[in-house]
Each structure stands twice: as structure tokens, then as C-alpha cells.
Design a binder for these strands. Structure first.
Length: 276
DNA sequence: CGCCCTGTTGGGGA
DNA sequence: ATCCCCAACAGGGC
């Protein structure tokens, strides 16, 4: 489910239903969800709280409460938040009952997702700052941001792009897409990426994330239209999950390799491996 | 039918 | 600094 565009889509979809509402009761059925804290204690804390707003930082969805605490929700691989379901959805791990009688269901097939309750703005800031670097959609995100983050580093540029402490919110799909758009081989040592390439990459990261948001997260692998199709051509990726298909830019066959422990898709003609 | 491999993320240990 | 493994489960390929 996640990747930044999907989290942002969930935030925008839920906000009208949640903002201003009071949580009448919360149920947390999965002990791991809020570890290391006690699920019952967190549920009790949520009960009676009013939701003043929904935010996002990186891939964290932030549920701001009127007692200055914030519930930081991370959906990891398969988490999702649903409103208005008329039956209990599969793999439900937690529920928020709102004061208007509606329900928010949290589902998570693989149970990697987390709910972290943070007390007050300083604790929230400390939590986020320890984990997240630059926001790629902020106006000041540019080539200089990447140059400072990559300086002197020899790890593959894709590995650093995926490091949330450097750039917040880039996942495996959008890393492949951004590197392809910027014509950078994913195994290029990060510190060796040229200045012009860094400028292309900064633009590409922002562009692919904004395209994903504009498509309302409809870019995921398992997304299908109600008729079972893929939707418009623009909703498909350029390289991700397109092994063997022609590169939209040059026509060469997309190849799949492994970089930073993750499946990696690239065009061998557009993204030349730099020689040492 | 069963086995093996893969995976949209992040944390911890080597 | 970098790399590997793991969490828990489903789905696809063979």
C-alpha cells in the first residue's frame, strides 16, 4: 500500500471524515502494532480524544489530537486505513469508532505497520528528526540537498536514496523511476554522481512523487481499474515491474537486477554504469 | 497439491 | 560505513 504518494492519498481521503471528530472508542487487536507500549493503554489514550488535523512527514501519517499528542501511523508494506466499510475488512488490526457513528478500520496483512503515540510537539519532532531527512516536496529540496547528503559516500546512489534519514519518502518503486528519469545507474557511488546528474535527480524525485500523488496512488503494482485494466498509460511506471519491455525513452529492453538488497529495474542504454 | 521465491519498509546486529 | 537478515503473510511460478 504505501510509498509516499499512497500515504498522501490516504491522508487526503481521510481528512474530511476525521478532522474535528472525536474518537468515541478505540480498539487495538494486535499487540505488535503499538509495541513496545501496551495496546490497551494506547487505545484508552485515544478514546475521548478529538482529532484536530491530519498531517504527513515522509511515509508517516500524523493524526494530531487536541491534547497535543500525535499518533504517528506507518503503513509499511500492507497497512491501510478505511472509512465507510459496511462489513469488517480482512486482516483488521484496529478500529477507531468516531462520535458520528462512523468507523475507521486499520488493516495490515503482513503486520509490519506501527502506531506510535507521541506526547507533545517536542517528542514528535524528536521522533521524526531521528528518522527522516529532507522532504522531497518542500520548495527548498534541490541538487544541493542531495549533494550534501551524498558527499563522500561510496554506497550505491539507490541505497542512499532509499535511506529515509537522508531523503524522506522515496521507496523502491519511485527510486527506480527517479533514477531512470535522471539517467543515473543505480549502482553509481553516491558521492560520484555529477552535479548535472544531481540536478536531474532532484527534479526527477519530485516529479515522480507528484505524478504518483496526482494519480491518487493508482500507480501501484496491484492497482486495477474496476474493469480490471491498468487505466491510462500515464498511470503505469516507466521501468518498475516492466522487465523485458522496451524503455519508453530509447526502446532498449528493461533489465532487472538487485541493488541494495532490492529488486531494481533499469534501462541499460539510458542508465550507463560509470567506469571506475 | 506442494515447494520455493519474491516483496510497496525499516530496525538491529555483524 | 555497509551489508545481511528478519518481521508475517499471500500470490505466482514451476
Amino acid at each position: 500500500m504505501p510509498e509516499l504518494p499512497e500515504v498522501e492519498t490516504v491522508r487526503r481521503r481521510l481528512a474530511p471524515f476525521l478532522e474535528g471528530r472525536t474518537i468515541a472508542m478505540a480498539e487495538v487487536d494486535d499487540a505488535r502494532l503499538v509495541r513496545p507500549e501496551d495496546p490497551a493503554a494506547v487505545a484508552a489514550r485515544l478514546g475521548g480524544a478529538r482529532i484536530v488535523g491530519l498531517g504527513r512527514r515522509g511515509k508517516y501519517l500524523l493524526v494530531h489530537l487536541d491534547d497535543t499528542s500525535t499518533l504517528a501511523v506507518h503503513l509499511r508494506m500492507t497497512g491501510n486505513l478505511l472509512v465507510g466499510a459496511d462489513t469488517v475488512p480482512a486482516h483488521r488490526r484496529a478500529v477507531l469508532h468516531l462520535d458520528d457513528g462512523s468507523r475507521v478500520d486499520y488493516t495490515d496483512l503482513r503486520r509490519f505497520g506501527t502506531w506510535q503515540l507521541l506526547e507533545g510537539a517536542p517528542e514528535l519532532a524528536e521522533f521524526l528528526d531521528a528518522r527522516l531527512g529532507a522532504e522531497p516536496l518542500d520548495p527548498d529540496f534541490d541538487a544541493g540537498t542531495l549533494r550534501r547528503a551524498f558527499a563522500g559516500r561510496r554506497a550505491p546512489v539507490k541505497a542512499l536514496l532509499l535511506d529515509q534519514r537522508l531523503v524522506a519518502g522515496v521507496g523502491n518503486i519511485y527510486a527506480d523511476e527517479a533514477l531512470h528519469a535522471a539517467r543515473i545507474h543505480p549502482e553509481t557511488p553516491a558521492g560520484a554522481v555529477t552535479r548535472p546528474a544531481l540536478a536531474r535527480l532532484a527534479t526527477a524525485v519530485r516529479d515522480v512523487l507528484e505524478i504518483g500523488i496526482a494519480a491518487q496512488g493508482a500507480t501501484l503494482r496491484d492497482y486495477r481499474t474496476p474493469e480490471g485494466g491498468y487505466g491510462s498509460m500515464q498511470e503505469r511506471f516507466q521501468v518498475f515491474d516492466r522487465t523485458g519491455e522496451p524503455c519508453p525513452h530509447c526502446g532498449a529492453a528493461i533489465v532487472k537486477t538487485r541493488v541494495a538488497g532490492r529488486g531494481t529495474h533499469l534501462c541499460p542504454r539510458c542508465q550507463r554504469r560509470p567506469r571506475a
